[in-house]
Nucleic acid binder design. Sequence first.
DNA 1: ACCGTGAATGTTAGCGTTCACAATCGTCGC
DNA 2: GCGACGATTGTGAACGCTAACATTCACGGT
Lengths: 343, 343
Amino acid sequence: MTVEEGRRPVLADVARVAGVSHQTVSRVVNGADHIRPATRDKVLAAIDELGYRPNTTARALVRGRSGIIGVVATAAVEFGTASIERTIELAASEAGFLATSVNLPELTPKAFARAAEHLRTLGVEAVVMVVGHDEALRLARAQTVGVPVVIAQGDLGEGAAGVGVDQVAGSRAATRHLLDLGHRAVVHVAGPLDWAEARARLEGWRATMHEAGLAAEDPLVGDWSSQSGYEAGLLLRDRPDVTGVVAANDQMALGVLRALHETGRRVPHDVSVVGFDDIPEAGYLLPPLTTVRQDFAAIGRRAVETVRHLVDGGSPEPAPLLVPELVVRESTAPPTRPRRTPA
Amino acid sequence: MTVEEGRRPVLADVARVAGVSHQTVSRVVNGADHIRPATRDKVLAAIDELGYRPNTTARALVRGRSGIIGVVATAAVEFGTASIERTIELAASEAGFLATSVNLPELTPKAFARAAEHLRTLGVEAVVMVVGHDEALRLARAQTVGVPVVIAQGDLGEGAAGVGVDQVAGSRAATRHLLDLGHRAVVHVAGPLDWAEARARLEGWRATMHEAGLAAEDPLVGDWSSQSGYEAGLLLRDRPDVTGVVAANDQMALGVLRALHETGRRVPHDVSVVGFDDIPEAGYLLPPLTTVRQDFAAIGRRAVETVRHLVDGGSPEPAPLLVPELVVRESTAPPTRPRRTPA
DNA sequence: ACCGTGAATGTTAGCGTTCACAATCGTCGC
DNA sequence: GCGACGATTGTGAACGCTAACATTCACGGT
C-alpha cells in the first residue's frame, strides 16, 4: 500500500519505526499473547506504513521447517489428478504450506528415485501421492524416510495415511445401474491392475455381477487412455452378446464409445456404457456419458488436512471414505431385447 | 545411500569429516574453481558418507533469492493450462527453481489481489501467467512490482516478456483447411474476447475469410467450456447455410459436435468442424476431431527459459513464435453439395 | 515498605549457508 | 635464494527470523 524504498523492509525496520524491539514485532506478527494493545497498534501501524511482509525463507530456516508439501503425480495430464493437484495447492496455501508438484514421466523406479531426490533437496515436510500405482507407492514409503506420505486415491493398506475413496462402491453403483436396467452381459474395461483404483473398480464390478449370479470374467484391461479404451472396445466385436460396459474411467469409456460406433453398435440402443470420474466433457459426448462422479476437490482438501495432522505429529487416523456418486446420462438405457449370456 | 543419524547433516558436519573448513565444502558443493582435486575428493567422499544435501532454505536466505517461481492459472482444469504447468514445474526444477501454482477461482480483481498477495508472501522471483486474460495480465504487471512477469500464451504487447504462440497462424490454418476443402460459409466459435488467444484466433479466422472474399461476421462467443460450445452449436440451427465451424478450442468444438448431432446435422457430411489444442481425447471423439495442435510442453519450457533470463537481469527479448500445427482427422471433409453464402 | 508474581518487553544466540576478506602455500623469475 | 603472484584454503560476519532467556514494571499481600 505504500512506496517501495529500495529494499524490502525487515523486522528490524518495523521495530525502529514502531520504537520497539524486533522481538516485539515478531510477537505481533505471530499473534503472541501478552502484548499491550497500544504496542500492538503501534507495530501494526509501522508494518502498514512500511508494507512489511515476513520473510518466509528466514522463518523457515529458524523454525527448521520448509513448509513445503511435495505432490507426486504422473506426467500425463488427467482431469482427476489435475483437479486434485489444484485443490491441494489451494488448501495447502490456506494452511500456510507451499505445495509443489513433481511428475513421474514414467512409472519406473528410476523415475521415482529422481523425483524423490528432488523432493529431498527441497526438504519437503510431507509427500502427497496422487498416483495410485503400487510400485510408486511402495517406493514413496521406502525412499522418503522421515516425512509422512499421504495417499490421495489409491489403496490405504496397512495403516497408511491417506484419503479413502470408496472406489468399490462407485463401481458397484455403476454395475448395479446396468443390471437394474436389465442388462446381463456386462463387461468391465479395467485400468492397469497395478493401480489400486483399477483393482477396486474391477472388484466392485465383479462382486456385483457375482451377487446377481452372473459371470464376471476376463475384464478387458486398458491403461486409462482413450486409445486403450478404443482398443478394448474393438475387442467387443467378438462379444455380440455384451450389452453393457463399465469402464474404469471416462477417457477409456470415450474410446469404447468410438469403437462401438465404428463396429456398428449404437449406444445406448445396442450397448450401454458407464464411465468413471465425470470429466467436464462427459455431458457433451455422443451420447452424453453416464458416469461415476468423484469429488476431487474433497480429496485434495482432505489430503492436506491429513498432512497437517501428520506434520503436527499425529498418527494416521482412518477417515470415513468418500463415496462417489452415479450420474446418469444418455449412454445407458434398458437393453432393447434382453439377451442371456451364453452358457 | 547411508544410515540416518538423527538429524540431517549440515555443511559443518561434512567439513569435520573431510577435515577442511565449511567454506571449502561450500565451494565443492557449488562447483567453484581452484579446488585441489585431492581436497575435492575428500569432500565428496564425506558428502557421500554422510548423505549430505544442501539446505535450500538457508541457501535461499543468504542469497536473498527464494528460488520460487509463481505460476498463475485459472481454477478450471484445462488440458492446455495443466500441460503447461506440468512442464513449467519440470523445467523449473531442472533450472534449480521451485514452481508453485496459484489459481484464480474467478477472474476478478479481488481474486487476483489475493493471488498476488500470496505470491508476495512467498517471495517469488518471477511470475508466469498461464491465463491470457487481459485484466488478469494487467493486474499481474501492476501488482507484482519488482518481479518479472512472463506470459505463457496470450498477448505479448508492448515489450512484455513471454512465450509467443502464433495463434493467428493456427487459426488461419484451420480456416484455410476448410476453405480449401471447398467450404464457403465458415463460422467461428470464439473464446471469451477478453482473452488474447481468443482474439487472435478470431482474427486468424476473420482475415482468412476476408482474403477469400467471404463474409466473416458475428462470431459466436463462448467461454472455453463444452457447455458454451454446445449452446453456440444450437444457434447454428438458424444458419442452415453453414457448412464449416472453426472453434477456438477443442472443448467447445466437442460441444458443437453434440449440438450439431442433436439438431440433425451430420459431421462431417453436413458440417465440418475444427477445434484447437488437440486434447488427448480429440482423436477419439465422434467423429475424431480435426484440430490445431499446440506444443504446450515447448511453451512451458520457453517460459522457464525466459524467467531464467529475466531473473539474471536480462531484458525481454523477442523470441520466434511457436507455430501450431493442423492435425486433420475425420471431422472435416469437403462439403457434400457446395452452397454459397446468402447475399 | 518489601518481596513475589505475572505481564510486557528486551537481549542474545543461533538456524545453515554464502560472501568478503584474510591467510597460507607453492612455484617461478631474476 | 628472496619476493611476488596466483592457487588454495580458512575466518568471521552476515541473511531475517524465532527461541530461550533475561529484564523491567506494576501491583497485591504481608
